[in-house]
């Protein structure tokens, strides 16, 4: 079986864990700062999704060791909390400067009625920010919404092939 690996990063809170639990049905492993889930795609392919919660010093995470094998990254923040975006900002700049893999930046809302625009603006391919970097919205606790983010990331990967 072939395995693809994705990394999900979020500020402190439940977002990372909720998102991976939604995408993978079940969280295989979790502790205070990390979690892990598996998403079977078919008999020959599975996606392993690792979650890292940013608790303070981002330099405490060895991004350079984690990153080489990863197919792409998903960075989550709470759309209704400006402070959540502030906490994620240094990580955004590190990822943008150092890593060359598709990146989805996602504003998470509690339910879809909180998304400030029609899905037509963001759902098909995300809102382009940079080459291979898109912005979108999702509800981390909703499997359909969370899987659309992973699907968009995989679409970006396929566009590269």
């Amino acid at each position: 079986m072939r395995i693809g690996e994705l990394l999900v990063v979020s500020p402190p809170g439940k977002l990372c864990e909720q998102f991976i639990a939604s995408v993978c049905d079940v969280l295989e492993q979790k502790n205070d700062e990390t979690c892990y889930g598996r998403m079977p795609v078919n008999d020959e392919l599975a996606v392993h999704i690792y979650g890292v919660q940013l608790n303070g010093n981002i330099d405490a995470v060895s991004w350079d060791l984690i990153s080489p094998k990863l197919l792409g990254y998903i960075l989550l923040f709470d759309w209704d909390d400006a402070d959540s975006l502030e906490k994620l900002s240094p990580t955004l700049d590190i990822f943008s400067a150092q890593f060359h893999a598709p990146l989805m930046i996602v504003g998470c809302v509690k339910n879809t009625t909180k998304i400030p625009m029609s899905p037509d603006f963001y759902e098909v391919a995300g809102i382009p920010i940079e080459k291979e970097t898109r912005f979108s919205f999702c509800t981390a606790t909703d499997p359909i919404s969370a899987r659309k983010i992973v699907a968009t990331l995989i679409d970006i990967l396929l566009e590269k092939v």
Partner: peptide, 16 residues
């Protein structure tokens, strides 16, 4: 322009 600045721009644009 840093990626974080672009995301902040979107955040403010989409908040009106």
């Amino acid at each position: 322009l840093k990626l974080s600045s672009k995301v902040h721009l979107l955040y403010h644009l989409f908040h009106g």
